[in-house]
Design a protein around this nucleic acid. Structure first.
Length: 436
RNA sequence: GGGGAGGUGGCCGAGCGGUUGAAGGCGCUCGCCUGCUAAGCGAGUAUGGAGGUAAUGCCUCCAUCGAGGGUUCGAAUCCCUCCCUCUCCGCCA
C-alpha cells in the first residue's frame, strides 16, 4: 500500500513516477476521497465529543426535567453520528479499494522502460560450457532417462502435469536440502515450514490480491487460497505485531510447493517443466529496518548467486525496468541462467525490495530500540532458487553425449558420492538402492 | 459435526449499564535512596485516526476490552451473528 501522504504531498511527482510502471493512477479521485474522509471524520468526532460530554452530564444531573431534556438532545446527536459514521465507512472503503489497486513506486534508480526490453544486464558470470555435440533439451533427456514422466503427469493432474521419478525426484530433493543447508548455515536464515493454504487477507498483504486473483488457486467455500510462493505465508507471519527493534533483521527461508494458475498461452513454453502449475521453490524473506533495505537487497542477491555459483551455472543478472517489475516491488533483480538445450535464459531467481509496501498492507511494524513510535519495517524476498528451472539448467548443462547427467559436485554428498544420473528402471527399486 | 467453559492493556487479573482507556499485581523505563550484585520510594509505561502547531515533538479530540451488528442519552458491561482457545463426545491421516 502506498502511503497516501506521498500522493498528497506531491501529486504530480507521484503521477509521473507511477506512470513509469505503466499505471495511470486515479490521483484526483484519491485526493478528493481523502479530503472528503478527513472532513467527515472531523465533523463526526466533533459531534461525538459533544455527545460524550452530554452523556456525562446526564449521569450528574439530579433534576428529572433537566435530565430528560438533555437525553432528548443527545438522542438527536446519536442519529447524526450514525449517519456520518456510515458515510465515513463508505468513503474509507472506496479509498481503500483505490489504494490497494496502486502498485508500489519504483526506486529512482530503476531503469525506466515499458517492458522487459528495457531491462539492463548488470553482471554476468559462471562457466562457459563447450559441447562436442549438440546439447539437447531437458524434456528429451529427462524423458529418456525416466526421471521426468510427462505423460503420466498429465494423466493424473491434467495439462502441464509432470512426475519426477527416481533420481529425478532425488535430484530435486537434494537441491532443496542443500539450498536450505546453505541458507540456514552460511547465510543466517532460520527455516520455516509454513501453511500452503492461506486466508485471503494474507494475499492482500503481499499484493497478490485484490488484483491478481485469476492467477491463484482458490477454495471458494472455505475462502482459502493455495500459496503461489512461500513469500505469502512468511511475509504475513508477524502481521499485526510490533516487533522489538533489536530482533531485526529477521531472515527466514522455506522450501514449499508453489501453485500458480497461470494462463499459459498455447504454443509457448509448452515443452518441459519451465512453466507449470505446481513447483517447488526455496524462498528467502527478510524483515529489515527501512534504512537497511538497500544493502539487504544486495546481500539477498549475493546469497542467491552463491547457490548459482556453487552449481557451476552460467548466469546474468537483470535490473528489471519499471515496466517489467511486479506490482509490489520497488526494485527487482532477476537472475537468469543459460539453458544450452532449450537455448534460452531461464529466470531462476527474482530478488525484490518491497520497502514498506507490504508492511503497510500486512501491518508489520517494529519499535525502534530505546523506545519511540512503532514504524513500518521493510520486506524483501528472493528465490534461492526455483526448482524446476534449476533442474532444467542442471540437466541441460551437465548432460553428456550418451544422455546421462553428471551430478554437480555440491550435490554429490546427497547421492552417496555418486556422480552420474543414468537411465532409471521404470518399475521396481531404484537402480542404486544397493548403495544405501 | 454435537455439548460445556471462556476470550479485557507486554503478561496475570478485577470490573458485568454512567468521571473505567479500563482497579490491583507483575514486567519494563526514568529518577531518588541505599556502601554493595537485594530491598525500598516516586513517576511513567497501548495502538490507530482527525485537528491545531514550524515540527515524526507538544496539545485537543475520536475510536479500540476477540470481530461485526443491535438496544441505550450513555456498553468492557445487555441482545444477536461470526471467529478463536480450552474441554467432553463423535470422526479421522
Amino acid at each position: 500500500m502506498i502511503d497516501i501522504r506521498i500522493i498528497r504531498e506531491n501529486p504530480e511527482e507521484f503521477r509521473r513516477r507511477i506512470a513509469t510502471k505503466g499505471v495511470d493512477a486515479p490521483v484526483d479521485v484519491i485526493l478528493q476521497k481523502n479530503e472528503q474522509r478527513r472532513a467527515l471524520i472531523t465533523e463526526v468526532e466533533r459531534i461525538k465529543a459533544e455527545r460524550n460530554e452530554g452523556s456525562k452530564q446526564v449521569a450528574r444531573t439530579r433534576d428529572a426535567t433537566e435530565r430528560n431534556a438533555l437525553i432528548a438532545e443527545m438522542k438527536g446527536l446519536g442519529d447524526k453520528i450514525s449517519a456520518l459514521d456510515d458515510q465515513v465507512r463508505q468513503v474509507d472503503e472506496a479509498l481503500n479499494d483505490l489504494l490497494l489497486g496502486i502498485p508500489n513506486l519504483p526506486d529512482e534508480d530503476v531503469p525506466v522502460g515499458p517492458d522487459e526490453t528495457a531491462n539492463v544486464v548488470t553482471s554476468e558470470g559462471g562457466p562457459e560450457r563447450e559441447f562436442s555435440f549438440t546439447p539437447r533439451p531437458h524434456w528429451e533427456l529427462a524423458e529418456e532417462l525416466g526421471i521426468i514422466d510427462f505423460e503420466r503427469g498429465v494423466k493424473v493432474a491434467g495439462t502441464r502435469g509432470y512426475v519426477l521419478r527416481g533420481d529425478g525426484a532425488k535430484l530435486q530433493r537434494a537441491l532443496i536440502q542443500w539450498m536450505l543447508d546453505v541458507h540456514t548455515t552460511r547465510h543466517g536464515y532460520s527455516e520455516i515450514e509454513p501453511p500452503l493454504q492461506v486466508l485471503s487477507e494474507m494475499l492482500v498483504g503481499t499484493g497478490n490480491l485484490p488484483k491478481f486473483a485469476d492467477t491463484l488457486f482458490h477454495d471458494a467455500e472455505e475462502d482459502k487460497w493455495l500459496i503461489p510462493t512461500a513469500e505469502v505465508p512468511i511475509t504475513n507471519l508477524y502481521r499485526d505485531e510490533i516487533l522489538p527493534g533489536e530482533l531485526l533483521p529477521i531472515y527466514h527461508v522455506a522450501a514449499t510447493p508453489c501453485f500458480r494458475r497461470e494462463q499459459i498461452s498455447a504454443g509457448r513454453d509448452v515443452r518441459g517443466i519451465k512453466r507449470v502449475y505446481q513447483f517447488h521453490k526455496v524462498e528467502m524473506v527478510k524483515f529489515v529496518r527501512p534504512d537497511k533495505s538497500d544493502e539487504e537487497l544486495k546481500r539477498l542477491m549475493s546469497e542467491a548467486l552463491y547457490v548459482v555459483d556453487r552449481l557451476g551455472l552460467k548466469y546474468h543478472v537483470l535490473d528489471l525496468s519499471t515496466g517489467d517489475m511486479t506490482f509490489g516491488s520497488a526494485h527487482t533483480f532477476d537472475i537468469e541462467t543459460w539453458a544450452p538445450g532449450s537455448n534460452e535464459w531461464l529466470e531462476i531467481s527474482s530478488c525484490s525490495n518491497f520497502r514498506d509496501f507490504q508492511a503497510r498492507r500486512a501491518n508489520l511494524k517494529f519499535r525502534p530500540e530505546g523506545g519511540g513510535r512503532p514504524q513500518f519495517l521493510n520486506t524483501l524476498n528472493g528465490s534461492g532458487l526455483a526448482l524446476p528451472r534449476v533442474m532444467i539448467a542442471i540437466i541441460e548443462n551437465y548432460q553428456r553425449e550418451d544422455g546421462t547427467i553428471q551430478i554437480p559436485v555440491a550435490l554429490r554428498p546427497y547421492f552417496d558420492g555418486r556422480d552420474t544420473i543414468g537411465k532409471q528402471p521404470v518399475f521396481g527399486p531404484s537402480a542404486h538402492i544397493a548403495d544405501v
